[in-house]
């Protein structure tokens, strides 16, 4: 197992920096996701860890030794590429043997290690197939097997599930995480898919514009986003602005454009201060209009199977996004009572 320490890593292509003074430590055996929109620098960061790009400045260290000037082939990493990058002229077995041959492993051991890893990815019978004879999901598993069969210090995955269909993608999330746990390898996973990052990672690093916006456990990122940008990128969110009326400890009474609410956490705000509160759609429930809560009118409804998506116009015109279980449903145009779970309100920084 290996600890990766990145400090003040910077890289520019022409105009502005793509990665801007990024510092991050990834612990032994930890699974860390770099999450962000395209162009946020996550893939460039990964390629610098792999050694495919040289940093303009900053240091990358594996277990305390600086590898910034070590070429990719000497870094002892395993990498899974978005398009799998399997060698089309080699069979599955030859693809897997490649890295072991580079390490001068004896032929007999190569055979046993390939058999063991293929067993792990449930492709034991596919050794003599060429990549073009495999399905996308099978190619993906071969790519993963090829990366871990060399028993690298670090596993790097660059959007590995982006080319799979939705169902397979969810299966592979569990599969990859399971194998990573069994092998116990330090892993960096690049994705723009927040569901992947949240479901697989020990820790999520949200990046915007080459900088880290927030680092934390998946629940931290989702329930306690640091900024509007993070809140908006990781899942769906209502951002409601209000004015603090009374504050007591962590919480306080906040006046919103369409009502008031007693929130247990409003940040360290004094009466009269403006606050922005994040409210996840699933923390909003709709009740018949006679019930408690704010009053609103359903603007639209989208049925999603396990959840129903509503847009509700409040008295002042603010539109609140709500997701509820489909047990009770409201027609578009219906008057409803809107109830927010105050415990799920979270104050956002800028």
């Amino acid at each position: 197992m290996t600890e990766v320490r990145i400090s003040h890593l910077t890289k520019s292509f022409g105009a502005g920096p793509v990665v801007d003074a990024l510092s991050l430590t990834i612990g032994h055996g930890e699974f860390v996701s770099l999450l962000g929109p395209s162009g946020c620098g996550k893939t460039t960061t990964l390629r610098m860890i792999a050694g495919f790009e040289d940093a303009d400045s900053g240091v990358i260290a594996f277990d305390g030794s600086d590898v910034s000037r070590v070429p990719a082939e000497k870094r002892d990493i395993g990498m899974v590429f978005q398009n799998y990058a399997l060698f089309p002229h080699m069979t599955v077995a030859q693809n897997l043997a490649f890295g072991l041959e580079m390490r001068k492993i004896p032929a007999a051991e190569i055979r046993t290690r390939i058999a063991r890893v293929l067993d792990m990815v449930q492709l034991g019978t596919m050794t003599e197939r060429y990549p073009s004879q495999l399905s996308g999901g099978q190619q993906q598993r071969v790519a993963l097997a090829r990366a871990i069969v060399i028993e690298p210090r670090i596993l790097l995955l660059d959007e590995p599930l982006a080319n799979l269909d939705a169902k397979l993608r969810e299966e592979m999330r569990v599969f990859i995480r399971d194998i990573q746990r069994r092998v116990g390898i330090t892993t960096v996973y690049v994705t723009h898919d927040q569901a992947e990052a949240l479901s697989m990672s020990d820790r999520v690093v949200v990046m915007f514009g080459g900088r880290i916006a927030q680092t934390g456990a998946p629940a931290d990122i989702y329930d306690r986003p640091a900024t509007r940008q993070v809140a908006g990128f990781v899942g769906q969110v209502n951002v409601i602005e209000g004015v603090v009326e009374t504050a007591s400890g962590e919480g306080g009474h906040v006046r919103l454009p369409f009502g008031t609410i007693e929130a247990p956490r409003i940040g360290a705000a004094t009466p009269g201060a403006r606050v922005a509160l994040a409210l996840r759609p699933e923390a909003v429930s709709l009740v018949p209009p006679a019930g408690a809560g704010w009053q609103g009118r359903v603007v639209s409804r989208h049925y999603g199977g396990n959840l129903v998506d509503y847009r509700v116009a409040m008295a002042d015109g603010t539109v609140i996004h709500a997701q509820t279980f489909p047990t009770t449903q409201f027609e578009p145009g219906a008057e409803v009572g809107v109830h927010a779970d105050a415990a799920r309100l979270w104050p956002l920084g800028d």
Binding site: E73, I77, G78, F81, L86, F87, P88
Partner: peptide, 27 residues
Amino acid sequence: IDPSLEAAARSLGASRAVAFRRVLLPL
């Protein structure tokens, strides 16, 4: 030839020369 094939070969421990001979040239 997908340029990431060379990157893949190098991530597996092949120098540029070996990646050329074993992957790019055959392709």
